[in-house]
Amino acid sequence: MNLLHHIKRKRAKQKRKQPIRRNVFNQICSLVIEYDLKESFLGDLDNVEDDLPGENLNFNRVKLKTPLESSLFSLATKDEYSLTMSIIGKVNNAYLKFANSPEEILLCGPLYRLNPALTNQKLMRYHFQTLLLHERAKANREI
């Protein structure tokens, strides 16, 4: 490939429309604004492991994913921004951008620890509680 072709390809690539990618800040910030989350939510995030139900989970309690219309570009006040950044810093995993409700933010950590290789399709489609139940059932079966 000569230089001319190289430059042309590079420019064509730059011109191509880039799809807007799912952004963890926008998603979490939208949730913080939508559900009016406060600093106390960070405490809930710390205690999530203790509050999780153990072996007695049953499959009748399958939840549906809550639809959320997150804005393309979120802007937050200083308090909302610091809370959003604290949540992102605390959870810090790849599943967080698929959370559609505060409950899913809480379940994000345990789910990631059980199976860090879930596909994006699954994360977008199913509630994290459903996925968590599924992963636990799978682990129990293997034992």
Partner: peptide
């Protein structure tokens, strides 16, 4: 006006 934040603005 009160400044609104996102990571780029920060």
């Amino acid at each position: 006006l009160p400044l609104l934040f996102d990571p780029a603005i920060e």
